[in-house]
Design a protein around this nucleic acid. Sequence first.
DNA 1: CTGTTAGCGCCTTCAT
DNA 2: ATGAAGGCGCTAACAG
Lengths: 344, 344
Amino acid sequence: MATIDDVAKAAGVSISTVSYALSGKRSITAATRDKVIAAAAELDYLPQASARMLAANRSHILAVTAPLHADTDEPAHMKFALEVTKAAREFDYDTLLLVHDDAVEGMRRTAATALADGIVVLDVNAHDERADLARRFGYPTVFIGIPENTEGLMCVDLDFEAAARMAVDRLVAAGHRAIGLISHERRTLERESNFPLRFLHAFTQHADAVGIEYAVVYPAGHKAGAPVDELLRTLPHMTGLVLNTSADVARTTTRALAEHGLSAPEDISVIAAGVTFSTARFVVPYDTIPIDARASCTTAVGILIDALDHGRSEPRTVLIAPTYIDYGSVHNRASVPDPTAQVS
Amino acid sequence: MATIDDVAKAAGVSISTVSYALSGKRSITAATRDKVIAAAAELDYLPQASARMLAANRSHILAVTAPLHADTDEPAHMKFALEVTKAAREFDYDTLLLVHDDAVEGMRRTAATALADGIVVLDVNAHDERADLARRFGYPTVFIGIPENTEGLMCVDLDFEAAARMAVDRLVAAGHRAIGLISHERRTLERESNFPLRFLHAFTQHADAVGIEYAVVYPAGHKAGAPVDELLRTLPHMTGLVLNTSADVARTTTRALAEHGLSAPEDISVIAAGVTFSTARFVVPYDTIPIDARASCTTAVGILIDALDHGRSEPRTVLIAPTYIDYGSVHNRASVPDPTAQVS
DNA sequence: CTGTTAGCGCCTTCAT
DNA sequence: ATGAAGGCGCTAACAG
């Protein structure tokens, strides 16, 4: 491979002129710059990554930690990794994928070896070790997801609280007074995966605040049958249903309801909220308040690059406002008598 | 961050001793090695990636090119990227994800800058530019997928030809004489995405060879309705169906058949073959001849590491034998009269 | 505006 | 078995 010396000789200039001509970090006469660029193109020259990293103390690489758990939704996970990668390339950064079971190992290693200039953290837990690491190491880090203690951190995420409230409000506005929530698996909540918890809390709080009846269930597998059964047992006159759950559970909900003689959306209005998948191809497409992976990742990478390239690294938490996709799966029953009303 | 000098001072030895003690590349007295290791641990020392790369001319990074097309099945795609990453870590390599639209750009760049020691190529086309690049550049490359001209290349893939034959044979053995194939979208075949083509050709050839009737359709979207209609129009007495198609199309096949009053597997025996998704959670789980992403990636990475670390880079093509997962979706109709037989 | 040069931190050959 | 020292290729002061 050609080195900077080869280019310098070919162009008849010094190596620093080559370096500057190609990086644009200082002004160069158009004529000499053109000579250099021509020589570089001729020789297929690109600066060697390792030498550049060592001299500039910059790798132009971003790491992405995406630990895998037994209950990890791999497609959702990788969707984020993909979007981070796309966003990073816009800023001329490459992306290193860290999927080791041990979440901190990769983070520690890329930081200590200066392999990556910064790191994007996915699948954040309420008490995430990586939050402490980021604080202690002072390594440029951005979280997609929000740990409980955000002090000193840069975080980006969908505003799950607002999403939960939006789902409830939409159903309430349509006259629903008894609403079920299908949440995530118990073990997902138990390891304090953050966004299901935030959604859950906001849902119950807001449901209490607006004074409706509700029930929450946690699927044990990939089917909606059992959760729906349980929901209808505890909340027999349920007319609204919020899905903050996996694609598999959501997809089988229509059938599970049908087994109770209920059809969506005529009998039960359904909203999928805080989910990465699309319901557009479901038998019955449900209104959706999506997690916009692209938006989250673009924002997160933007923040990280800002810290890296412009030193703007003040701690901050950016909440992305939820949006509502209407497929008509919420039916208005405002005129129907409230089934929870006491019969006198 | 601590440097090798710090460790050398702390351990009271020279830096070369530190380097060798930690890399194990030459014999060191147990006592001094322990001293060095203790000092390194004390200082949280890890060799800086860039310096190590520059000096050793090795990055310990593998690149993965996974170009995205409009019709790319992202989850399937990323599944491979994930498995490559996991496999690479077993050999102490990190993984760089290349998802630029321009497939060759990333490959060229990582090679020219020596950012990655080698590269894993995904989503291979019959006439893939990256194959020519690999031959010309002589850059350590392994293909997961098989281009038409494999000369000088290292390739790994499921034996799609064998998979297609296996599917046909299984149906024929069960007495089916009229078999449909739902393939991929036309545009996928048109850009010569390799494995759908290989499957298709092997299917038709083998069907001809064993003398059965068959028809092939190409879905235009994500639903099985139209393809199934077309299939039943051209092959009205079809009793066997092979799915070498997307998860969405496969998932909606049962319903599409039902709309013709046909139920799987009683009326139509179905096999999903050469697919990355699982049918285990389908309403009717179909027998499956899976693409084992893990096996392909582990093998591919093994080959690449072998070339990198042991110089064993002879061209070769490794075909992974297909396996059959039986969910009981093929019904035996050997005793049933052949509906294609002429009524005299 | 351009050239000279001192490192960046580590690996590895050569010497002992 | 250990140490000394020369690069690896590039960037960014420092000179001019």
